[in-house]
Amino acid sequence: MSDRKTERLINLTLALLATKRYLKKSEILANVAGYEGSPESQDRMFERDKDDLRSLGIDIEVGDLDIFFEDEPGYRIAQNSYELNITELTPRDLALLSVAANYWNGSILAADAQSGIRKLNSLGIPTAFDFDLRIKYKFENPAQHLDILSEAITTRRSVTFSYDSYSLKFRQIDPYRILIWNGYWYLIGFDHDRKDIRIFKLSRMVSDIKLSKKKSVFEIPEEFDAEKYLPTIDLQIQHLAKIRVKKGVGLILRERGKVLQEAEDSDLVEIGYENEATFLREILWNGTNVEIIEPINLRELLVSTLNEFVL
């Protein structure tokens, strides 16, 4: 039963924390509540409990022998290794942290951020909201791949997955970092097939992610800087178009462009665009209110897009 085991683990923690000297295993088994059954099974129980507490991040010290202990090792938990020990946080710090922790929106990091905040809130510091930070992040979806990818990164295992792309579907990557950018999650890493560093959107990973069995199969280059590999396309306007926009409509395009020539029922507008496909969608969104004049190839592209709608 989980109740009894939980109880025993709590009692063991309490006892090991309370003691200044090391407790012998025999003392523990005899005095800490919950160790029952044959000596062998008590022994196994205790070994498992130690591992369990360690997996919670609790340091159980194994004591060097007191001369009186003969061969039996002793155990204790040192308070300063168990307890949260942190430079004094201000009430404002705590408020900032609790705002920040709310960005995660159900993703895997949410639970860790919240439990961290709970511990800080157990230090007896009040929280003071004296700022107006109301903007937050909302992610497209709680990214389910985060824990497995962060494990792969920290243990330096390569990963394989299927990717929703035009060309290459199956990818093998040495994962370097998970990027949070504009409300999207990305993985950046070394692509084995492309022999280069590539960026992948987590939402386009369409299969489970598999980790290599071996650890430490690659190294992240020293001074690796993810920002250097970001597509820079949105930073510069690359093309100029001329479009005819009817009076009083196409307002967003008008806002972005500049009127070159006014006519009776429409204006000729010059406008910059970055991405052909996105721009074309914008033009088509405006229906018969907007006509592309230049460049000619965009005009042709638009017509061929329209021709795809065959009855």
Binding site: L84, L97, A101, L109, A113, S115, G116, I117, L123
Partner: peptide, 16 residues
């Protein structure tokens, strides 16, 4: 006193 923070708690807070 509260337990010390785990690595993943520290990481989550730093990233937020």
């Amino acid at each position: 006193r509260p337990r010390k923070m785990t690595r993943s708690e520290v990481a989550a807070m730093l990233v937020s």
